[in-house]
Amino acid sequence: TIKDEGPYSPYGGLRMGMTRVNISADTREEYHNEWLDAIRTKDDYLVGGYSADEYLSRAMFDGFAGLGVFIADEKPDREV
């Protein structure tokens, strides 16, 4: 018998998407700050291959990751 493992996942079940903000291809361009505008337009960055999207997703991840983690509630019974 073959166990049903659900639909095929190319990343082996690893999900790195974001659930709290939407930075899909069509909304990315709506985000602006000095730094992002510079790395999107200046040749110094473009030619070197610096990724504005990578920076954006890191900033967004940092901004919203762990908001629902309540340390005081999750850690009380662990022995230190």
């Binding site: 602006h32 700050n33 890191r58 991840f61 940092d62 901004g63």
Partner: peptide, 17 residues
């Protein structure tokens, strides 16, 4: 060590939008 500085940049980006 995870710092809140880049997080602030992210939040400001979202606010500006």
């Amino acid at each position: 060590v995870r710092h809140p500085f880049r997080a602030l940049e992210g939040a400001v980006l979202e606010l500006r939008r």
